[in-house]
Simulated assay, not measured.
Amino acid sequence: MQDAAQLTDSQNSETPLLFGRVLDGRGGGRPVTWDQVQNWQPDAPGEVLWLHVCRIQPGVQDWLENSFAIPEPTAELLVSDNTRPRAFAEGNALIATLRGINFNPGAEPEDMISMQLWCDGARLITLRRHPLQTPREVLANIDRGTGPVDAGATITMLAELMIARMNQSIVDMNEVIDLLEDEDPEDNPEGMLKRISTIRRNCLALQRHMSPQHEALEHISRDSPPWFEDHDRREIAESIARLRRYLDDIDISKESAVVLQDELRARSLASSEHATYMLTVVAGVFLPLSFLTGLLGINVGGMPGTDDPEAFWRVVVLCAAVLAGLLILFRRLRWL
């Protein structure tokens, strides 16, 4: 089924349509071409037209305005790069912008892909700029005959799958944190701090991008037109609860990363302070010896022992005695 979906994209590469299905109301659907959707009318009660469109193709906004009588400001919103999640009702139509995790090759977890949608209960249009896997999953279910039965169920399934995909990114970040907690900080502290900083940035980005989606889903549940049925609202409520749990998990991951980062920095600071302390102790030990040798090394007349061949060894014994006395004193002061 996935290969068939990709083939549909290839066949419609010269048109905005990525794929289209007419839902039969029983979980299945039949494909439709770009020419067939222009004047589409349901052949049987309960049929719903779902079109997945690339919004950056030329003429998409005019097509929305002329073929679906969508007001110009709304059509402009559907094809714009304003991707902040939102949802509102306009007459009998529902308009929404949702975000999903970007799992395309080379993408970072915090990279998000937006999907705009417009639906009047009988026709559903989803629009995207970059490839998005969620609509493909729903399409595969439809082609297997286990997909949504109406427009409301399609919207709820899209939202549910988008939110469910967040879980993998959160699990991956938690696994990295667990591995970092088990590692020895002395092995590669700089590398560990770099990975922790990356996790914190990912958590902040996910939280910043996905928190508005919580509000958008609540608007869908609360303000949708009558064709969005009660069971659809319950499904959206479940998605909202799941998203809230995921946002809480992101908070926990972020706090865990902060604790681990603080612990590494505390260890690094303690190690640096210990090195500074030891240097201070060494300087304290050798300062009197340096003063003594410096005093005896001045090149002026009258220095004692200049004519005594045993004077050097007396100075060595004196320095050793001073060193031993300083070590005993530092030991009693608990400096060593």
Rank of each mutant, 00 (worst) to 15 (best):
Q2K: 14
A4F: 11
Q6G: 04
N12G: 02
S13R: 15
S13Y: 11
E14A: 13
T15I: 04
L17I: 09
F19P: 03
G20F: 02
R21H: 01
L23D: 01
D24P: 03
G25P: 06
R26S: 14
V32E: 10
V37N: 06
N39T: 13
N39C: 06
N39A: 15
W40K: 07
Q41P: 06
P45D: 02
G46Q: 11
L49A: 02
H52L: 06
V53G: 00
G59R: 07
D62Q: 15
E65M: 15
A69K: 13
I70N: 04
P73F: 06
A75G: 04
L78N: 03
R84W: 09
R86T: 11
A87N: 00
A93C: 04
A96S: 11
A96T: 01
T97Q: 08
L98I: 11
L98M: 13
G100M: 00
G100A: 08
P109G: 01
D111E: 14
M112V: 10
M112R: 08
L117Q: 00
L117P: 01
R123A: 07
R123D: 08
L124W: 08
T126P: 08
R129H: 14
L132K: 10
V138I: 14
R144K: 14
R144A: 15
G147H: 05
P148W: 06
D150G: 01
I155N: 01
M157L: 14
L158F: 00
A164W: 05
R165C: 08
M166G: 04
N167E: 13
Q168E: 14
V171T: 12
D172H: 14
M173H: 09
L180R: 04
E181P: 09
P185T: 09
N188D: 15
P189Q: 02
G191I: 12
G191Q: 10
T198W: 05
T198G: 10
R200P: 02
R201Q: 13
N202R: 00
C203G: 05
L206W: 03
Q207Y: 03
R208K: 14
S211R: 15
H214C: 09
H214I: 01
E215V: 12
E215A: 14
A216V: 03
I220G: 00
R222A: 10
E229F: 08
H231Y: 12
A237W: 05
I240R: 10
R244Q: 14
D249Y: 12
I250Q: 03
I252D: 06
K254L: 13
V258F: 08
Q261W: 04
Q261P: 02
R265M: 15
A266R: 11
A266S: 15
E273Y: 11
H274C: 04
A275P: 02
A275N: 12
M278C: 10
L279Y: 07
L279V: 02
T280I: 09
V285A: 03
V285H: 09
L287V: 12
L289A: 04
S290H: 09
F291A: 15
L292A: 12
L292Y: 03
T293N: 02
G297E: 10
G302P: 01
M303C: 07
G305F: 00
D307V: 06
A311M: 07
F312Y: 02
W313I: 11
W313E: 10
R314D: 12
A320D: 05
L326R: 06
L327T: 04
F330C: 07
L333Y: 09
W335D: 09
W335H: 03
L336V: 13
